[in-house]
């Protein structure tokens, strides 16, 4: 039996009269990769921000390991074991790659030596050891994204939330990130991934949640999702949906 780790229950988020998320619910189990997909403006990042404490949801409940964490501040949520990355990469520009990751590593230790040990372990895992003394600001986009994932990992999370970490990467780079995700899953983490690149998402996800216009329109294993009428309509529009034209 899979053990549930994060439960999102009827989250609604409004900005004035604009409803960005409406009654979205799903769960993440331990050691599972869940993907959140949907067209632009579907409310994926908003939902991310609601879970990680950057926004206060209008209504609904986020439960992490039987604890209600709705409305907790961002740093508290991170300390509990949920760490996120950002859609627009945010490396600490004036700090080197190593220092970037060490800043994350300091969450669980006060000693510099221990932080350095955690950092070198994570740099090995994310292939950054060679670049450790380059400043965050002068990295390429792939490496920036990698540093961001590494920095999040250094906080030793139980759930890692990646916000479009593959956008703008080429095929080989995407493969690297996919492998990294699988490696992390093997090591016992749960992942929540927001992504547009379907070929990357489908093979690694255990469960997919589809949002459109703020509402959850489908949820299931990848093979079900690709055949789901609502999902195809959401992406292609009613007009171009081959099946609906036939009928």
């Amino acid at each position: 039996m899979l053990k549930q780790i994060l439960n999102i229950d009827n989250i609604t988020m409004k900005f004035g009269s604009l409803v960005a998320n409406e009654n979205v619910s799903f769960t993440i189990n331990e050691n599972e990769i869940v993907s959140l997909i949907g067209p632009n403006g579907a409310g994926k990042t908003t939902l991310f921000n609601c879970i990680t404490g950057y926004y206060q949801p209008f209504s609904g409940k986020v439960t992490y390991k039987d604890m209600d964490i709705t409305g907790f501040t961002a740093y508290k949520i991170c300390r509990l074991g949920i760490t996120r990355t950002f859609q627009i990469v945010q490396t600490l520009k004036e700090m080197t790659v190593e220092e970037n990751i060490m800043t994350g590593a300091f969450l669980n230790t006060k000693s510099r030596k221990e932080a350095e040990a955690i950092t070198s372990e994570i740099m090995e895992l994310t292939d950054l050891t060679k670049k450790k003394s380059i400043l965050g600001g002068s990295l390429t986009i792939v490496d920036k994204k990698r540093v961001e994932i590494a920095r999040s990992l250094a906080t030793k999370p139980q759930i890692l939330m990646l916000d479009e970490c593959m956008a703008g990467l080429n095929q080989t780079e995407i493969k690297d990130v996919m492998n990294l995700c699988l490696k992390l899953k093997e090591s016992g983490l749960s992942l929540l991934i927001v992504e547009h690149i379907m070929e990357a998402i489908m093979p690694i996800s255990d469960n997919i949640v589809v949002l459109n216009a703020g509402k959850k329109i489908a949820e299931g294993v990848p093979s079900d999702i690709v055949n789901n009428d609502d999902v195809i309509k959401a992406y292609l529009g009613d007009k171009y949906h081959a099946k609906s034209q036939k009928s």
């Binding site: 950057y54 961002a74 945010q90 700090m95």
Partner: peptide
């Protein structure tokens, strides 16, 4: 500068959002 506090302060200088995301009470 070389301690945890120094790293955290610099992270806050570089980006408030990132600092919060890695568990720093800014």
């Amino acid at each position: 500068e070389n301690s945890k506090t120094g790293f955290y302060l610099k992270a806050i200088r570089e980006s408030h959002e990132v600092a919060e995301s890695i568990g720093i009470n800014t």
